[in-house]
Amino acid sequence: MTPLLALPFPAIDPVLIEVGPIAIRWYALAYIAGILLAWRYMVQVVRKDALWGGTPRPTPLDIDDFVVWATLGIVAGGRLGYVLFYNPAYYLQNPLEIFAIWTGGMSFHGGFAGTVLAMVLYARARGLTVWTLFDLAGIAAPIGLFFGRIANFINSELWGRLSDAPWAVVFPNGGPFPRHPSQLYEAALEGIVLFLVLRLLSHRSHLLQKPGFLAGAFAAGYGVGRSIAELFREPDAHIGFLAGSLTMGMLLSVPMILAGVALMVWSARRAPAA
């Protein structure tokens, strides 16, 4: 295994524009792009009557307002999840660093939990069907995941394990040896592949008329994709492997897979919403 056979890391500055103390980072832009495109996609879906039959659904205005709630859930949950799951000792000693989200460090599983809470509260406040809101968020979430993983690659963080593959990359802060570009694997699995699968289910199989099914498909699909990617991703140094080759990402994905499958079975057995 030699760096001479690896791809050089692309010369992309994590900071796009910097004016004095103000810096615009690719990481922040990825979150903004993911949220905005997911919002527009959900609006487009609720406007297509043919997908819904007689199933109650939010209005485009409901989706507009929901984006604010979802953004708060994503950011607060993602950061809190990272703090609690991945490095609690460090943040206990440096509590002010918890708020420095521009430096990176967001947990998908924490962001998922925060978004679920936001959806439940918003659905209750607006009198909406929470399972339908879950479905809409689920089919749009891979858009944000794709951009988030690309930002991880640009930041040279969450890189993969040592590799002699011809597409392996020598990351600036990953040591002298080539590694799997696991961020790009995750962008493909959790972003592109999962989006296409959910698009097929929602637009070809009309499963939006079975509230909860697509939310379950997203949870299970993400868990499977993440677990596959974890086989190539380097575990966090302060956590390492939990048992054998099991990682924290795999451990957190297991409940998502089980809950997602259970939700799909439950939804498929229900009568269509009227």
Rank of each mutant, 00 (worst) to 15 (best):
Y41S: 07
L121W: 14
Q93C: 07
G175I: 11
L200T: 03
W131N: 14
E230A: 04
Y82E: 11
F147T: 07
G225W: 09
L214Y: 01
G77K: 11
A243C: 09
L117A: 15
A38M: 04
L145F: 08
G138S: 02
G105P: 06
L72S: 06
R25M: 05
W131E: 14
A187P: 00
V46S: 06
P272W: 05
E186C: 04
T132M: 03
Y82H: 15
G20P: 11
I98Y: 11
R204H: 08
A274D: 11
A70Q: 09
P10T: 09
W26M: 13
F218N: 05
P181Q: 07
V197L: 12
P181K: 11
Q44M: 15
N94R: 15
P56L: 00
V19P: 15
A23F: 01
L196K: 03
L37S: 08
F241P: 03
V68A: 15
V261C: 05
T59P: 06
M1S: 12
L200R: 07
F9N: 08
I63A: 03
F153P: 01
L252G: 07
Y222R: 11
Q93H: 13
I143Q: 08
N87P: 02
T129L: 07
P3G: 12
V45L: 13
V224Y: 14
G110R: 01
L158F: 09
L214I: 02
A262E: 01
P272V: 01
A23W: 00
I12Q: 11
R149L: 10
A100Y: 05
M119A: 13
S227R: 06
Y82N: 15
G221C: 09
D135K: 03
V75I: 06
A271T: 09
L136A: 10
R226M: 05
G223E: 03
T71C: 11
W39H: 05
